[in-house]
């Protein structure tokens, strides 16, 4: 059982945790407007897991549960495939929400614009599903490698 580093490191990590998570969520939510998307955003949120593992040790892992992370990973992938199947009336990965005017469905004209959040149809939803999957997968890899017993 790893106890973690000194209280200074723990406090700084606790302060840095919130901005890292918020920035990762921003990158995921604005994936269709600015550089970023589900993969980089999920990786940014997963750095929070690595920071927690290094600074606080492994005592909190049992409270989270690897099974729950594995379930979040599966949920992200199933959500991604489910969103892709929802447009099967026309074709797989058909972006049926565009131009409907509903949820994320506002149409956009060609050319530069300031960027509206409620556009792009399925792409933000797929970004969120992929972000959840990437976050859970990288966190699972980090936690599994950190807690593995390497010595003979």
């Amino acid at each position: 059982m790893n106890k973690g580093l000194s209280p200074i490191v723990k406090n700084v990590a606790a302060v840095a945790l919130v901005p890292i998570t918020v920035f990762g969520l921003y990158v995921i939510a604005h994936g269709h407007l600015t550089p970023g998307g589900g993969f980089p955003g999920g990786a940014i949120i997963a750095t929070m897991t690595a920071l927690l593992l290094i600074s606080f040790g492994t005592s909190w892992v049992k409270a989270i549960g690897k099974e729950r992370l594995s379930m979040a990973e599966s949920l992200g992938l199933v959500g991604f495939v489910g969103l892709a199947i929802m447009g099967i009336g026309k074709s797989f990965f058909n972006n049926f929400l565009v131009g409907q005017g509903l949820f994320f469905g506002n149409a956009v004209a060609f050319g530069p614009n300031p960027g509206w959040l409620g556009t792009a149809g399925l792409i933000p939803l797929m970004n969120m599903a992929v972000g959840l999957e990437v976050f859970a997968a990288i966190s699972l890899i980090a936690i599994t490698m950190f807690t593995a017993e390497v010595s003979k």
């Binding site: 407007l33 600015t34 550089p35 050319g111 530069p112 614009n113 300031p114 960027g115």
Partner: peptide
Amino acid sequence: IAPIFTNAPSL
């Protein structure tokens, strides 16, 4: 520029 239309200075 990068292929992103948000506040793009040119096409």
